[in-house]
Design a protein around this nucleic acid. Structure first.
Length: 665
DNA sequence: GAGTTTGAAACT
DNA sequence: CAGTTTCAAACTC
């Protein structure tokens, strides 16, 4: 099934993927070359035994090593797959659950193809692997060195970030599992920071070849450390018992039951390819401990999904879809070239794209998914379905920065999922989104599944909105996916930013469609151009437009807006200053008193003092009244008296402070 | 806060 | 593609 059209594919950057020779093979077909294995094998699979390395391709076929898995796979008529791609380092194994090979990936060695990477520890001769398996419910234990203590994967997903070169003439690739860093896009200085459970870490060393991603056991609450590397443990790394089924959605019933792996590991991997402007995100299916009650096999291993892998980047990061091979043939990541470049160049938004297998007919054009959309697997089904998730949601899942595990254990799905305001969004930086969180929508009839809904239109879940009958959430992923598909059918660019760059050579942004205002003069927020703070352009079909450069009305409005802004800033500054002064005052009067007698300075404001102060103020009021002072003057007198009272209180406090200090001496 | 206005989105 | 309806945000009172 083609998901991405050839023309879209042509837009792909070279380093992203090879969309050729990609086939998805129904793993249910016996005798095919699809990789099959029994779940039970996963627990005992180890990589410590010898394995085959293809120097040319830097591939390791783990299932040749994992004898049990391999044998089982062979017995099942599903020999392991080796994906050969020039310059790629792929490891493919078949030790996962049925049809879910585990892919290990040797780090790219640049000029030394075939040379295994050490574990950063020069004493170690064992190559380290990147476990790039996107396994549904993949239960992976750490891969340390060349050893995988436990591997269990239910489902292989495809992470295709292959170079855009034809695959080898070898047997048809049945699973495009992963792509390592493209040599084309990697400089020797490329660093590949390891990422554990959704955490993207920056590699401090500029010269650090791709290394190992250590998959940590979910129950391991300690930091996994790799020599010379930073590893963060996801706060989501909580015992599987905390997994909460967040949603049971879908018109089809429980088939699309969704478990958000908040309480376990994020099922998203971030892949950043150096030299690429794209920000890859790999998806993995939910962990085994889902509420679906589906057996995860006799495995007693811990639960773990694949880990995010960051190849590194210092460039603009964009998102690309990542799609399981079983479901999708191609995925065409596409830069948001039409987006508001000025804004989006610094964005870190991500896109994860995952198919809703039971609804292949509604698979959207993944290149046009809502900004920041993430397709995340619909747990409970392994290869059943996926949810289209706003990227920031996923980001939030995987990157709650360094939350302690203790807190994560009580991590609530309901609270965790819906927090999105502080995440990079639609090209806005995190700071911007923090300062300007999206306004909650108030949809009542659209179920927040139409573009009327700003949340939906921006590829976000509704969060703290006032909407009724909202379907824009994980609980209704099926409907949401349908809605997205519908929108994309209607307008393939429906989710693309409306404000893009103007014609070539023009620096100004412009509305992609232009507005159609009739009565607002394009000087109210009804007008999308005005709302975006841009001028109307020739493509606008507005009537009576006043939103052009020389428009006096517009200038007046701009001046008013500027003045208002200045006023707000001044007020803010004044408040800040006043607050600072008050704090400073308190700080100056507090310490000795509190440390000496244990009394705080404000305890000087006793009831008696208050009464006395009020009497003074009332006296001033009476005085003003008796002298027939105007109200303004009366207020001034009262305020002055209040000031005097305060000064006396402060003075008393200071005196007490000095007395106390002298006593202490 | 309720009601009105507005224009994009959706629909026909 | 044009006309109409629906919708939710913007706006006004």
């Amino acid at each position: 099934m083609d998901v991405v059209s050839p023309e879209l594919n042509s837009l792909l950057p070279d380093e992203i993927m090879d969309t050729e020779d990609i086939e998805d093979v129904p793993h249910s077909q016996p005798g095919t070359t699809g990789v099959h294995s029994e779940p039970s094998l996963a627990t005992s699979t180890k990589l410590t035994t010898p394995f085959t390395i293809s120097p040319a391709n830097r591939q390791i076929i783990l299932n040749k090593v994992a004898s049990q898995a391999s044998e089982a796979a062979k017995s099942a008529g599903n020999p392991p797959q080796v994906i050969k791609q020039d310059g790629q380092k792929l490891l493919v194994t078949a030790i996962g659950k049925s049809g879910q090979p585990i892919v290990l990936q040797l780090p790219h060695t640049g000029s030394k193809p075939g040379v295994s990477q050490t574990a950063g520890d020069t004493k170690s001769q064992a190559p380290q692997f990147k476990v790039v398996t996107i396994g549904g419910r993949s239960d992976l234990k750490p891969v340390v060195g060349n050893q995988v203590t436990t591997l269990q994967t239910q489902q292989l997903k495809t992470v295709q970030i292959a170079k855009k070169t034809p695959a080898s003439s070898a047997a048809p690739i049945k699973f495009i599992i992963t792509k390592t860093v493209n040599s084309k896009g990697i400089s020797p200085q490329t660093s590949v920071p390891p990422v554990i459970t959704g955490r993207v870490l920056t590699q401090s060393s500029p010269v650090m070849p791709p290394r190992t991603i250590t998959l940590s056991e979910p129950h391991n609450t300690n930091l996994q450390s790799i020599p010379g590397k930073k590893i963060a443990i996801s706060p989501l790394k909580t015992p599987s018992k905390n997994i909460k089924p967040v949603a049971v959605g879908g018109v089809g019933g429980s088939q699309f039951k969704t478990i958000i792996p908040l309480a376990t590991q994020p099922n998203v991997q971030q892949i950043q390819v150096p030299g690429s402007r794209f920000h890859y995100v790999r998806l993995v299916t939910a962990t085994t401990a889902s509420s679906t009650g589906q057996p995860s096999g006799p495995s007693t291993s811990s639960i773990q999904t694949a880990k995010p892998m960051v190849v590194s980047t210092a460039a603009v990061r964009m998102s690309v879809p990542v799609v399981p091979a079983q479901t999708m043939k191609q995925v065409a990541p596409k830069p948001l070239t039409s987006g508001p470049q000025v804004v989006t160049t610094t964005q870190t938004q991500q896109r994860l794209i995952m198919p809703a297998t039971p609804l292949p007919q509604i698979q959207p054009n993944f290149t046009n998914l809502p900004p920041g959309t993430v397709l995340t697997p619909a747990p409970g089904g392994g290869n059943v379905g996926y949810a289209v998730v706003p990227a920031q949601y996923v980001t939030q899942i995987q990157q709650p920065p360094f939350v302690t595990l203790a807190s994560s254990s009580s991590f609530s799905a309901s609270t965790g999922i819906q927090t999105q305001a502080r995440l990079p969004l639609n090209g806005l930086s995190a700071a911007e989104t923090t300062s300007r969180p999206r306004k909650p929508c108030n949809c009542t009839k659209s179920q927040c599944l139409k573009l009327y809904c700003d949340c939906f239109a921006n590829g976000e879940f509704c969060n703290n909105c006032n909407c009724n009958n909202c379907f824009n959430n994980l609980e209704h992923e099926t409907e949401r996916l349908k809605a997205i598909k519908t929108c994309l059918d209607r307008n393939p660019e429906a989710f693309k930013p409306k404000i893009g760059k103007g014609k070539e050579g023009e620096s100004d942004r412009r509305h992609s469609k232009g507005c159609n205002c009739k009565r607002s003069g394009c000087l109210k927020n009804y007008c999308e151009c005005y709302e975006a703070k841009i001028m109307c352009s020739s493509i606008c079909k507005c009537i009576g437009c006043k939103n052009f450069e020389e428009s006096p009305e517009r200038k007046t409005l701009m001046h008013l807006a500027d003045a208002a802004e200045v006023r707000v800033q001044q007020q803010t500054a004044a408040k800040t200053k006043l607050s600072s002064q008050i704090s400073d005052l308190l700080m100056r009067t507090t310490p000795v008193i509190s440390s000496g007698s244990g009394r705080l300075p404000y305890t000087f404001v006793t009831k008696e003092v208050l009464e006395a102060t009020c009497e003074c103020l009332l006296e001033q009021a009476k005085k003003a009244e008796q002298t027939h002072q105007p109200q303004v003057e009366a207020e001034r007198m009262i305020l002055e008296e209040f000031g005097h009272c305060l000064m006396r209180i402060i003075s008393s406090a200071g005196k007490a402070k000095s007395d106390c200090a002298s006593i202490n001496c």
